[in-house]
Write a protein that binds this DNA or RNA. Structure first.
Length: 765
DNA sequence: TTAGGTTTAG
């Protein structure tokens, strides 16, 4: 019997046992018979105090009464439970509970003649592979909100993790973990938890996780309430992500967890989504900067002792640190880990030196395990014998800011993602990258006397390339200026100047139906529309339909806003937040932004009497990632919101903005760069418009306004195309296609030009 | 007992 799980179910008549398991009647129990695929079911009618056997094993005895044949003499039986199971059962079993056991040993009962019970008793233990299921009639736990805690009480509570220190070796005899919780009462509680076994402390992996503590003692300390472990303390930890499976993390094999508690977790998740900032200092090695603290999720490749107060961990996360990194010198014999792997990954692993209180835990880590190392410090330093500075990674002593090491289990979603990424890493590639970007390469290259400067390179090669029509010959600008429109030309010219100089002003919204262009609305207008629509209370009659689940709550601030979130259901085995579309009523701009970080799509809506509807089209009708999608006021004819359910019904809805717009009757406005390039070639000059969604700059116009990295990239590209402060002779050449077209109005006629099928050269961006 | 969040200084 491989199952060792003990669980409480409520109002569940069928035990979650495999189909091949059969219920055994007490009267058929006999010593020596095969009971491998049988289970016994009964009611707990008596239990004895938990005791220890001479060898220290926990021992717990109960009496079970069979449900059938109540008059039979052998209707009750002694169950002897050993070890961890004994301890767990003693904690939660109550008289009257329904008890199911499988994987038991049937032994002749030495006390049958005295107690008049069954001639055999059952022996049950984890070691024997027993499984126990308990259906409890009893304990209904009461959970205290954090703003109602009183000094000297022992309580049960739920909270969202706002801060935590992963279990570390305390100066006493136990492991310690410090956890700060918050809940919708907006009160914080810092708990100090001790246990000799770190596995018995809450398995918290990140801020935002949700915990349930049972029997935590509340004390006043420095004028504030504080939680501390008391006898019988138990915890469950849950992923705090809305939509993630509600699976408790716990070391206990026995816990109560019912539908009601399931609901509590879901509600806390939704609350936390808009109230807890989880943007922690996590980083990939490729993104580290000198002089910062960050959390790293990684795999342990090697470890070595260094000296009494420090210990070396060699880890990787599949990405490459952009700076030269330090190597901590250790004796080859002291380095643990697969030699071949250590060599293969030598350009991707980094050395992390851990100090003091972290050494003991670091020593115990298994090679290959997945770790989250919290608050690693990066420091730039140059050794005496080197002229380059290298990045050092330190995990300093102490536990400030949650500094420490956590081991993540393989079923952790972040680990799964990391594993998939590590599998995709091409080691050959990383080794080439290393040789190309290494300090050594630079020093060799600089010895080349004919090493070309950027300027020379750009004077020789065009900085833009054509994506089509390669057969066309170049036409001089003078010829173009003297020709009639419309025509298409290939040109070679220099970019003398461009407008707008402030690049963010080049982004507009374009309607491809009516061909109108408009400015991108600023956040303020959106904010006002949200404030106006927050006045309309969510209509509860529109909640929880066939195609969405709704959650509603009232904010704790003085405004007491009602917020409703409707999660659109779709037909997936497991609905993940990153694939989920939600609609929100009554949220603020900030709350909506926070939701977009976690969910695939957010649609702001308001209630009418009989349906949800989109807000004014001056507001975005959809937010996805960093992008706000708008509809054309002229061309849109909004349709009922329930049309979304047709997309939700797809196997794996991709939630494409174009598709969402279509079913909602919205004519989607597209983000576009509009710029005017003044091009010259020595024979003439033309002003050509650039009208580009993404192709020219290889930057989506939709993302530039919210992404400073892309803004920098675009500015750098323009500086390459048109380096500021250069003479005309020193400007690089552009190869472009332009087309001429006629623009006529009542007063005059003119010829305009537009750039097309042209992109910035790959090595420029 | 231990720690009681708010960065080491190697």
């Amino acid at each position: 019997m491989p199952v060792q799980l003990l669980k409480i179910m409520k109002e569940q008549s069928e035990a979650p046992l495999p189909n091949h398991m059969q219920k055994e009647d007490l009267k058929h129990l006999q010593e020596g018979c095969d009971h491998t695929n049988k289970y016994i079911q009964g009611i707990v009618v008596l239990s004895y105090p938990l005791t220890k056997l001479r060898d220290g094993t926990d021992f717990f005895k109960i009496v079970l009464q069979g449900l059938d044949d109540l008059c039979s003499r052998i209707n009750s039986i002694n169950i002897l439970i050993y070890g961890k199971m004994a301890e767990d059962c003693a904690k939660i079993l109550r008289h009257g509970d329904t008890f199911i056991v499988a994987g038991f040993k049937v032994i002749k009962s030495p006390t049958a003649s005295e107690d008049g019970r069954h001639g055999c008793h059952l022996e049950v233990s984890e070691e024997a592979g027993s499984a126990i299921y308990v259906s409890s009639i009893a304990p209904k736990y009461v959970y205290t909100p954090l703003n109602q805690l009183k000094d000297g009480t022992i309580v049960n509570l739920y909270g969202v993790v706002k801060f935590f220190k992963p279990p570390y070796v305390s100066k006493g005899t136990d492991y310690c973990s410090v956890v700060t919780l918050v809940d919708p009462s907006n009160v914080k509680l810092t708990c100090t938890l001790f246990n000799g076994n770190p596995d018995c402390l809450p398995k918290i992996y990140k801020v935002g996780d949700i915990v349930r503590f049972h029997r935590i003692k509340i004390r006043e300390y420095n004028g504030q309430m504080q939680g501390i472990t008391s006898g019988g303390f138990a915890s469950l930890t849950f992923d705090g992500t809305v939509g993630a499976p509600v699976v408790p993390r716990t070391s206990s094999k026995m816990y109560t967890f019912m539908d009601e508690e399931h609901k509590t977790i879901e509600e806390l998740r939704v609350w936390a989504a808009s109230n807890i900032s989880i943007s922690g200092p996590a980083a990939k090695l490729s993104a580290v900067q000198p002089m910062l603290f960050f959390d790293l999720t990684c795999q342990l490749v090697g470890k070595a002792k260094v000296d009494g107060s420090s210990f070396l961990l060699k880890v990787w996360d599949g990405t490459k640190c952009p700076y030269p990194t330090w190597r901590v010198p250790v004796e080859a014999k002291d380095l643990e880990g697969e030699k071949v792997l250590l060599h293969q990954l030598r350009n991707l692993t980094v050395d992390i030196l851990v100090y003091d209180n972290h050494v003991q835990l670091a020593k115990s880590l298994k090679i290959g395990s997945f770790l989250r190392i919290y608050s690693i410090h990066t420091k730039q330093a140059s050794a005496d014998n080197e002229d380059v500075s290298r990045i050092e990674f330190h995990l300093h002593g102490g536990t400030c800011y949650g500094r420490g090491i956590g081991v993540l289990p393989e079923n952790n979603p972040d680990v799964k993602e990391l594993q998939a990424f590590l599998r995709s890493v091409d080691l050959a590639d990383s080794q080439n990258m290393e040789s190309m970007s290494s300090v050594e390469f630079n020093s060799i290259s600089s010895d080349f006397t004919d090493f070309e400067s950027d300027l020379e390179r750009f004077q020789r090669l065009p900085v833009t390339v054509l994506t089509d029509h390669q057969d066309l010959n170049n036409t001089e600008l003078k010829t173009i200026m003297n020709s009639t429109a419309p025509q298409q030309y290939r040109i070679r010219a220099k970019l003398r100047t461009y407008k707008p100089q402030k690049l963010h002003q080049s982004v507009k919204l374009h309607c491809s139906k009516c061909n109108s262009l408009q400015e991108v609305p600023d956040g303020e207008e959106f904010n006002l529309i949200l404030q106006r629509s927050a006045v309309i209370a969510p209509n509860p009659e529109l909640h929880n339909t066939l195609w969405y689940d709704s959650v509603m709550w009232t904010t704790q601030d003085e405004k007491q806003r009602n917020i409703a979130i409707h999660f659109v259901k779709h037909d997936e085995m497991l609905q993940r937040p990153e694939n989920t579309l939600l609609m929100i009523e009554g949220g603020t701009l900030k709350e909506i932004w926070k939701l977009t970080k976690r969910f695939k799509c957010v649609i702001p809506v308001r209630s009418t009497e009989d349906d949800l509807e989109l807000l004014d089209l001056s507001a975005p009708f959809l937010l996805q990632g960093n992008v706000k999608y708008y509809g054309c006021k002229q061309c849109s004819a909004p349709k009922p919101i329930k049309n979304l359910s047709s997309i939700a019904a797809e196997q794996e809805p991709s939630w494409e903005p174009t598709e969402i717009a279509q079913v909602l009757g919205i004519e989607l406005l597209q983000y576009v760069f509009i710029m005017k390039f003044t091009l010259v070639d020595g024979t003439g000059a033309v002003n050509a418009y650039l009208f580009d969604y993404e192709k020219f700059f290889q930057i989506p116009a939709s993302e530039i306004l919210t992404n400073s990295f892309l803004q920098e990239k675009m500015q750098m590209t323009m500086n390459m195309l048109c380096p500021p402060g250069r003479k005309l002779d020193d400007l690089p050449w552009l190869e472009c296609f332009i087309k001429s077209y006629n623009v006529r109005d009542a007063m005059k006629h003119r010829v305009c030009y537009q750039i097309f099928d042209t992109t910035v050269a790959e090595d420029v961006v």
